[in-house]
């Protein structure tokens, strides 16, 4: 039904005007210090007036986004694809918490930004009651906990969970009727695979490790990528040159953060046409991604200001804006 999202899209159009534009991002970058940058953000309605610390303000912004979307969409499951990464982040934290017998409340992501309550995951892993978890998480939770308890290898446990998260994101993307959500799933998995392959190659990891770490997707042949990464970094570049990610090679050569910026900018470029679509769920998905991109960008600018990085250095890391 074309009518289903008309009201929601009209609300999103209003909110899009409050997204930080490129000139505002530039003024944040040029701000003399972190306090001045925070003041600019407050002038644009950022924060909830209570959390004056950076993390608190950014969390409040993310919660605002999800509260707004929940107000508009009766069935939030269409956007679960954006939250699976948080679920699996909580699973990783719960596995580590159980294996190391220590509690770290602060690392868990809150209820508004997950599809499964963090407390439920913690309890299920702690009590080894894996049946309490969603079906897709049960096997991997057990496997990751066993891997950590038996080998003490935290990296292997993380890799198992990260791969499971990527597989789930890709599947959720493919199930969606919306092009933006499908693109998000594919690009998320492909960029994660490229990052993993590069990192594993530089760390001289073997082929078996790469096969366990890389999640299959449509735009990359993970067997070829794993083979290339097990050979040399040049072999990885050579392989990528034959894919749709050939443009990313120059960024990968610069730094991991440059590649991450390239991925984020590509995502913004792909979602930008949604500014003109009035009837589908696409503009809502695009708004969520635009806000995530904005929050990530602001976090990076504030972090740069806190660490006294130069304006040029911060500007190099700033992402493109949706509006």
């Amino acid at each position: 039904m074309p009518e289903e999202y008309i009201y929601a899209v009209a609300r999103v159009r209003g909110k899009e005007q409050k997204l930080l534009s490129a000139p505002v991002m530039d003024s944040l970058v040029s701000a003399p210090g972190v306090n001045e940058a925070l003041r600019i953000l407050a002038d644009h309605g950022w924060g909830d007036g209570e959390n004056t610390e950076i993390d608190g303000m950014l969390t409040a912004e993310r919660e605002k986004t999800w509260a707004f979307i929940k107000e508009l969409v009766p069935d939030m499951s269409v956007f679960d694809v954006f939250l699976y990464a948080n679920d699996y982040h909580n699973l990783k934290a719960a596995v580590k918490e159980t294996a190391r017998m220590e509690t770290q409340d602060s690392v868990f992501i809150g209820r508004n930004e997950t599809t499964v309550d963090a407390e439920l995951i913690r309890r299920a892993v702690r009590d080894r009651d894996f049946g309490a978890l969603p079906e897709e998480m049960q096997e991997i939770a057990k496997e990751a906990l066993d891997a950590l308890l038996h080998t003490g290898d935290g990296q292997m446990s993380d890799i198992l969970i990260d791969r499971a998260a990527l597989v789930r994101i890709l599947e959720a993307g493919k199930r969606s009727d919306n092009e933006i959500i499908r693109m998000y799933g594919e690009l998320t998995v492909a960029s994660a695979d490229i990052k993993t392959a590069i990192r594993a190659c530089l760390m001289k990891k073997d082929r078996a490790f790469l096969e366990r770490a890389l999640a299959p997707c449509d735009s990359l042949d993970v067997n070829d990528l794993a083979q290339a990464a097990s050979e040399s970094i040049d072999a990885v570049y050579e392989y990528l040159d034959r894919t749709t990610y050939a443009d990313a090679i120059s960024e990968i050569r610069k730094s991991p953060s440059a590649f991450e910026r390239w991925c984020d900018n590509l995502m913004i470029e792909k979602i930008r046409p949604e500014i003109h679509h009035p009837f589908t769920i696409g503009p809502l998905a695009a708004y969520i991604l635009a806000r995530e991109n904005e929050i990530k960008c602001v976090r990076m600018i504030l972090s740069g200001k806190t660490n006294d990085l130069s304006v040029e250095s911060i500007r190099e890391r700033v992402r493109e804006t949706y509006v």
Binding site: P2, E3, I6, Y7, A8, V9, A10, R11, R13, G14, K15, P278
Partner: peptide, 18 residues
């Protein structure tokens, strides 16, 4: 009726914030 309803939803969405 359908058309005015569609436009009405969009109008309500705009008036909510403006």
């Amino acid at each position: 009726a359908r058309g005015v309803g569609m436009a009405g939803q969009a109008a309500a969405g705009v008036v909510t914030d403006q």
